[in-house]
């Protein structure tokens, strides 16, 4: 018994202190990640008072139409300031969001005017770009996404499909793990997805980065049981 334990300690002595530190830190990190995933799946219980800063990620065409349709029925005074992000190559989406924000402003009384901001983000890879150059552009896109997220630090993230939501949601998750900012991430899968989740949806679902995933077809609910089936939004 005595021998055994002294052997154990001498063995530990052989290990370098930095290695122990790394093992300890990664164990802590693992538990923290599991805790964040667990807490994300539960209803938010310590919401700070007042409205929540909200990041809305827009994609091209149908995605933006679906997102604006959802925003149209949300109590917008609870979600402000609002930050809209679209790909730098997509000019239409932010324009549509601006039109919607302007009509909101016209409807609202002067005292409830809230701020909204419209931002563009670099895409990691354009259609047809070669894989070699896309390594560089991916890194640049990540750095840009990180810079935007540090500036915004949203409390709520709404997204519904475009690939640009992956780096942003991943950064938000890292912020949660390190206690920089707690955010609630909601992913609404596009109505166009009937049988399979999109790549963005699949990643957010499988890696449990999204707090809640919504799907619009019962076929998807039976395939991905943790998703919430909410019927057609459009």
């Amino acid at each position: 018994m005595e021998n055994g334990s002294s052997c154990f300690f001498s063995c530990v002595g052989f290990l370098n202190f930095p290695i122990l530190l790394i093992i300890g830190a990664s164990t802590l990190l693992l538990f923290r990640i599991l805790y964040v995933i667990h807490r994300s799946s539960k209803q938010l219980h310590n919401r700070p008072p007042g409205p929540l800063s909200t990041l809305i990620i827009l994609g091209s065409g149908g995605h933006t139409a679906e997102m604006l349709n959802l925003l149209g029925v949300m109590q917008m005074d609870r979600f402000k300031p609002r930050y809209y992000i679209a790909a730098a190559t997509d000019n239409m989406s932010l324009q549509k969001a601006r039109v919607m924000e302007d009509t909101l402003k016209n409807k609202a009384e002067a005292d409830t005017i809230c701020t909204s901001d419209f931002l563009q983000i670099y895409r990691s890879r354009e259609v047809g770009q070669s894989y070699i150059t896309s390594v560089g552009t991916t890194l640049a896109a990540l750095a840009h996404a990180l810079w935007l997220m540090i500036k915004i630090r949203p409390q709520v993230i709404l997204c519904n499909g475009p690939g640009t939501c992956i780096p942003l949601c991943a950064i938000a998750f890292v912020f949660k793990v390190f206690g920089i900012r707690w955010s609630s991430i909601f992913y609404v899968e596009s109505i166009a997805r009937v049988k399979r989740l999109s790549l963005s949806g699949l990643l957010l679902y499988k890696l449990r980065m999204a707090d809640q995933v919504f799907v619009q077809w019962p076929q998807l609910k039976s395939k991905y049981p943790r998703a919430n089936y909410v019927g057609h939004l459009m």
């Binding site: 209803q43 219980h45 909410v230 057609h232 939004l233």
Partner: peptide, 18 residues
């Protein structure tokens, strides 16, 4: 029959404790 986005809005509100 056009769909309805209010169930998602309600869900999000409830989840956030509004």
């Amino acid at each position: 029959q056009p769909g309805d986005a209010t169930p998602v809005a309600k869900f999000i509100n409830r989840f956030l404790g509004f």
